[in-house]
């Protein structure tokens, strides 16, 4: 128990086209404050489901297990309450919101979270100043704040926009769901630097990825291998190298 994020025996399923599908089959995972952990694993192992369940997507049904976050029962909370409590999910496929101005969306979100945290809301001037600086640090074009949320964004722009939101919402725990996919080398470095700037003893992250490259930048404290809805192996940063050269076969064999 870390008293920060503790997942224990988590099982979840989804109702897909009239058929119940078990996806998480007893996930145990603890992340202490200040640490960055990574989850790697073959496609369909449940990585993204884990991130959705932690963020509170309603089409997944939790059938067993518990998750505590800052000592509170995370599973009891609404998605926006989880956000206010400090949980942030960078989506693998960020959602488009036609007609909704990006800056306006960010400000509404930041102020909703600040309100819930008992902080003073930011006025338009103060917010725009902060947002522009944060966008600049991520090498985002200035007009991205004026465009509609994720509409017409390239894959790379969407991912940067996710990191921008994370920077502004100041979460204590971020889940980065394949934030590296679709990024070129330069964009990957910029995004990784954005995440690294967040690092502090009060900030933890769970990085879901297929590639070692992002982990080279982020230098995770622990790496977990996930397969068939469970964590089957955990180790230090050296695991990334091992998986990169050998793949998952050995871990899968050991688990079976």
């Amino acid at each position: 128990m870390t008293q920060f994020l503790d997942i224990s025996g988590l099982c979840a399923r989804i109702d897909a086209d009239g058929q119940e599908k078990e996806i998480l089959r007893g996930v145990d995972l603890s992340i202490p404050p200040g640490e960055v952990h990574a989850i790697m694993g073959p496609n369909g192992c449940g990585k993204s489901t884990l991130s959705y369940v932690l963020a509170g997507r309603e089409d997944y049904e939790v059938t067993a297990g518990s998750v505590t976050f800052h000592g509170k029962d995370l599973l009891e909370m609404e998605p926006e309450e989880r956000a206010a409590a400090g949980l942030f999910l960078a989506f693998q496929a960020p959602i488009e919101l036609p007609g909704v101005n990006n800056a306006n969306f960010l400000r509404t979100a930041v102020n909703a979270v600040r309100r819930a945290r008992g902080q003073e809301e930011l006025d338009a001037v103060a917010f725009l100043k902060t947002a522009r600086e944060a966008a600049k640090a991520l090498s985002m074009a200035p007009d991205m704040l004026k465009r509609n949320v994720n509409v017409g964004f390239s894959g790379g722009e969407k991912k940067r926009n996710e990191v921008l939101q994370m920077t502004l919402l100041q979460p204590s725990f971020a889940i980065l769901d394949e934030t590296d996919s679709g990024l070129d080398v330069d964009a990957l470095r910029i995004v990784a630097e954005g995440v690294n700037r967040m690092r502090s003893p009060q900030f933890s992250a769970l990085v879901i990825t297929h590639h070692k490259r992002l982990l080279d930048y982020l230098k995770p404290d622990r790496i977990h291998v996930m397969a068939k809805g469970r964590i089957i192996h955990s180790g230090g940063p050296e695991l990334a190298e091992q998986i990169d050269t050998e793949g998952y076969t050995r871990f899968l064999a050991e688990a079976a």
Partner: peptide
């Protein structure tokens, strides 16, 4: 869900999307 994950209440999220 995207809006709520960013901390918006459901009501605000719907309002935002409808206005969009």
């Amino acid at each position: 869900f995207y809006c709520r994950q960013r901390g918006l209440s459901e009501e605000d999220a719907v309002g935002l999307i409808v206005n969009g």
